Simulated scan of single mutants.
Amino acid sequence: MGSGLETAHPLVTALLNLAVAVFTGATVSHWWLARHPSGWADMRRRPVRSVALAGAVVALASDIVWLWMESAAMAEVPVYAASNATWTMATSTHLGLAWGVGFAALTVAAILAGIGDGRRTWSSIAAVAALAVFWYTRSMVSHAASDGDFSVRMLADWVHLGLINLWVGEVIVAGGIMLRATRAMATADRRARAVYVTFLSDSATTALAGIVVTGLYATWRSVRSIDDLVGTPYGNTLVAKLLLVAVAVLLGGVNRLVVMPPWLSSEAADDAAPPALPRRFKRILLVEAAVLLATVVVASWLVSTAPPRGANIGTSTHQCRAHLRPRSTAKAIHDT
C-alpha cells in the first residue's frame, strides 16, 4: 500500500464511522422527539431529520469508497486501477459478503429515515435495527472476526461498536441541534428540554458502562503484556484512544454531577434555571463532542494498525495483500 493510501484509508474509515454515529444519534433523537411531543420538540424535528439523512448519505458514499480502497490495498494496485479488484472483493470474499449485507442494511436505514415524518416511533426503531445489522457486519471485518462470525468476541465487539455509535452520535446531535438556544422558552418547553437532558445523560451513562466492559474484554484479548502497550504502534494508538475516552468521560461527569443537579432541580420546582447553567452544559457538551471526534479518528487508525506480535487478534490486512480468497477460506483475513 502506498503512503498516500495508507493515510487516506483510515481517514475514509473515520469519516464512515463518524457519519454512521451521527446518523445513529439523530435517529435515536428522532425517536425521542416522537415519544415526547411539545412545542420545543416540534422545532427540532425537521433539523434532526435533515442531519439523519445527511449522515446516511455520507455514510453510504464513504462505505463505497472504503471498499474500493480496501480492494486496492489487498490487490496492491493503485486506487484508480482497482475496479476489477473491487468487483472480485465484493463478489468472491468474506469481506465482500459482509460489506454487501452491511451496505444493504445501511440503505434500508437511510430509506426509513427519509420516509419517517418524525411523529411515529416505528420508523426510528426499524432504522436502529438496520443500523445494528450494519454494526455487526463491521465487526465481521474487524480483528474480532478471528474467532468466527458468531463468537463471544464478535458479540462483544458488536455491542461495543453500537454503544460507541450511540454515545458519540447523541453527544454531537445534542450539542449541535437539540440544545440549540431558543429565545423566550415557555415553562412547558423548559420542562421538555429538562426531560431530554435527563434522557441524554442516562443513555450516555448506560452506553459508557457497556463500552467500558466490552472495551476491557477486547483489550484483554488483544494486549498480553505491558510491553504490548509501550513502544508499539498498536499500543501507542490504543493508549491515545483510552486517554481521549477518559477525557470525554470526565467532561460528561462534570455535566452530570455539577451542572445538571441545580439546573434540573430548578425546572422541577417550575422555576426558570439561570441561563448560565444550560449554556455551561452545552459548552461542555461541545468540547466533549470534539474529544469524541478525535477518538473516532484515532480508533480508525487503531483498526488499521498491525497488532502486537503474538496477540490473538487475527491476521492483518497488510499481511494478506492480493489474497482475495473465496468466502469459505477468507473469513478472518481482513482487519478494517
Rank of each mutant, 00 (worst) to 15 (best):
M69P: 05
M69F: 09
D63K: 10
S83Q: 07
S38A: 11
R49K: 08
L60S: 03
W68T: 01
R45G: 07
L53K: 03
A75E: 04
S71K: 03
V77E: 07
A73C: 12
V57L: 14
W66S: 13
P37N: 03
L18T: 11
S71H: 02
M74W: 09
R35L: 10
V65D: 02
R49Q: 15
V57F: 13
S29N: 10
G39H: 11
E70C: 11
R45A: 12
I64M: 10
A41S: 15
L60F: 09
R45Y: 06
A82C: 12
R35W: 00
A73W: 15
V79F: 11
V28P: 03
R44T: 00
L67T: 00
L33V: 04
V79C: 05
A34K: 04
A72E: 09
V48Y: 01
A52P: 01
L33H: 06
V79L: 14
G55V: 04
V51S: 09
A41E: 07
M74H: 12
R44N: 07
A54R: 08
D63I: 03
W68V: 14
R35G: 10
L67I: 06
V48E: 00
V51G: 10
A59C: 01
V28S: 11
V22F: 06
H30G: 15
S71W: 02
W66L: 15
A54Q: 06
G39Y: 09
L33D: 01
T27Y: 01
L53G: 10
T24L: 09
V77H: 07
A54T: 04
W66K: 13
M74Y: 09
V48F: 03
L18N: 11
W32Q: 06
R35E: 13
M43A: 11
F23Y: 08
V65S: 05
S38Y: 01
A54H: 11
M43W: 08
A61C: 09
H30M: 14
W40D: 04
D63C: 14
A41I: 09
V51I: 14
D63E: 12
A34W: 11
A75Y: 00
P37M: 08
G39L: 04
S29M: 00
H36L: 11
P47I: 06
P78M: 05
S71A: 01
P37D: 07
V77A: 05
F23A: 08
A41M: 01
L33F: 05
V20H: 01
A85V: 04
E76A: 15
A56L: 02
A75C: 00
A85M: 10
S83W: 12
D42H: 15
V20A: 03
L18Q: 00
P47R: 05
A54I: 04
E76Y: 05
S71G: 08
Y80T: 13
M74C: 09
S50H: 14
P78D: 08
A41W: 05
A52M: 05
G55W: 02
G39A: 03
Y80W: 13
V79I: 11
A56P: 05
A61K: 00
L18H: 02
W31T: 04
A82D: 07
A82K: 09
M43G: 14
V65H: 03
S71D: 02
R46Q: 14
W40Y: 09
E70R: 11
A56W: 00
L53C: 06
G39R: 02
P37F: 02
D63R: 14
S38L: 02
A61R: 10
T27R: 09
W66G: 15
W31R: 12
V79E: 06
E70K: 13
H30A: 12
